[in-house]
């Protein structure tokens, strides 16, 4: 079956996450992220008291929302969305007003002080365009992350979302986040 359009998304099986932060390091190396800034992070949630306690690691980055509020509020159109769903910043158009950072419900963006522009996860679009997968996905030792095209019925991501229960974060903001957390 021919694939007409693409919609990239990321499935995260956070129960497999061991908080090794290889994804964070791989992203920084791949995208030359400035010192002090990060494009992805691992949220830690601790619960209970010894001996009844649990800890949950939850990787997070830009959700590449279906209806991204950062793109909506950008006054110059520097924040934009590709047809395949990847949300990017056009650095030449960004004036550094940081409205998008305020508007992002996930705090996924950072301000590049040196360049004076806002930056964020690109889903490694330079790699994806060559048929590769994002650096964080490739490097993950415990296979937490599954990257793929939602429109491709043969993709692993399609199978996971069809057969497993999942949640997205803060759907009430109306942004349509595309990071799917398996339950």
């Amino acid at each position: 079956m021919a694939i007409k359009k693409k919609r990239y998304a990321l499935v995260i099986d956070s129960r497999k996450c061991i908080n090794c932060k290889a994804c964070v390091v791989a992203c920084k190396a791949e995208n030359k992220v400035p010192v002090g800034n990060f494009r992805n992070r691992i949220n830690e949630e601790r619960k209970g008291e010894y001996p009844k306690l649990s800890i949950n690691f939850e990787p997070e980055q830009c959700h590449h929302c279906a209806d991204p509020s950062c793109v909506r509020v950008c006054p110059t159109g520097a924040s934009w969305q590709r047809k395949d769903g990847i949300v990017l910043v056009n650095y030449d158009e960004c004036i550094g007003c940081r409205y998008c950072m305020v508007a992002c419900p996930y705090d996924a963006r950072y301000f590049n002080e040196e360049e004076g522009v806002v930056d964020k996860c690109t889903f490694c679009s330079h790699r994806v365009d060559k048929g590769d997968i994002p650096a964080c996905v490739e490097t993950c030792p415990s296979k937490v992350r599954v990257f793929g095209d939602l429109e491709d019925p043969t993709a692993r991501i399609h199978e996971l979302l069809s057969t497993r229960r999942y949640r997205v974060k803060e759907p009430q903001t109306g942004n349509g986040p595309q990071l799917y957390y398996l339950l």
Binding site: T76, I95, C97, G116
Partner: peptide, 14 residues
């Protein structure tokens, strides 16, 4: 307050 103050003219190109 802008990251690139000299780019403010871009506000008026869009």
């Amino acid at each position: 307050d802008l990251g690139n103050w000299y780019r403010f003219y871009k506000l008026f190109l869009h």
